[in-house]
Design a protein around this nucleic acid. Structure first.
Lengths: 121, 121
DNA sequence: ATTTATCGTTTACGGATGTAAACATTTACC
DNA sequence: GGTAAATGTTTACATCCGTAAACGATAAAT
């Protein structure tokens, strides 16, 4: 069962800070996405069913926190993209962006550093 | 209007070789995905509506070819992932995989080469 | 000419998604 | 204690997606 786009926006809020109530999540993402209260409630319920968040009662409301980590999510999404489009490997993606001149100076510097660190192992 | 997963499988066939008839596309992807004829026809129609392929009559049938290039598609998908999960930059994705030891030797070698080539510009 | 095989076009249908209203329940206030 | 505010739960509804069958038109075969 996968996390949809809208659901991921709720997760992002919880990954930034948790636990949060439905109200607080609305505060975090509502204006940005133009969501009403009901929308957040629905998404939270779907995320509960998908076991991506857990809820603990706090007085009359619930406080939600991630059960799925951002790491897990990011890895899953990235791997799926690499598998579908780049033969499951990282270098071809970087090459693709390099050819399109979409590597920033910062990217290049960081990649250099990264590779140097890999030397020391 | 975005290309769905199933639609992308049809596109992949056309990117490998074009033009192809619906029958030929079925031959290319049908067994692999377990599709019937009607499925391919529907997908082709959706791709036509999305203007991702064009069709030219050939006798009683049509021959289809991509209108959207694989480059464009791959770039769009990749950029969307990077924007959503890595602040729009490439290096953090590579770092993410590096931390998880998911860089193959081949990846590392290719990345080194790539960065050296970037020097010469 | 009539039947049949071959294509494309239209319609279908269940499940997921985006978005939310309606309803129910609990608690706080008058 | 009754009413209003706050929360969660259920239901809704349009669109997209995966998958395909039904229908229609046209060309080929007899």
């Amino acid at each position: 069962m996968s996390i949809s786009d809208a659901e991921a926006a709720v997760m992002e809020a919880l990954w930034r800070r948790a636990p949060l109530s439905a109200q607080e999540i609305l505060g975090e993402v509502g204006s940005e996405r133009g969501w009403q209260e009901g929308t957040v409630k629905s998404l939270l319920n779907r995320l509960l069913r998908k076991r991506a968040v857990k809820a603990v009662r706090d007085g009359r409301r619930y406080l939600y926190r991630p059960r799925l980590s951002r790491e897990q999510y990011v890895f899953g999404e990235s791997k799926s993209l690499l598998d579908r489009l780049f033969g499951g490997r990282v270098a071809p993606l970087v090459a693709h962006f390099s050819e399109r001149r979409k590597l920033s100076k910062k990217d290049i510097a960081q990649l250099r550093e990264l590779l140097e660190e890999l030397d020391d192992e």
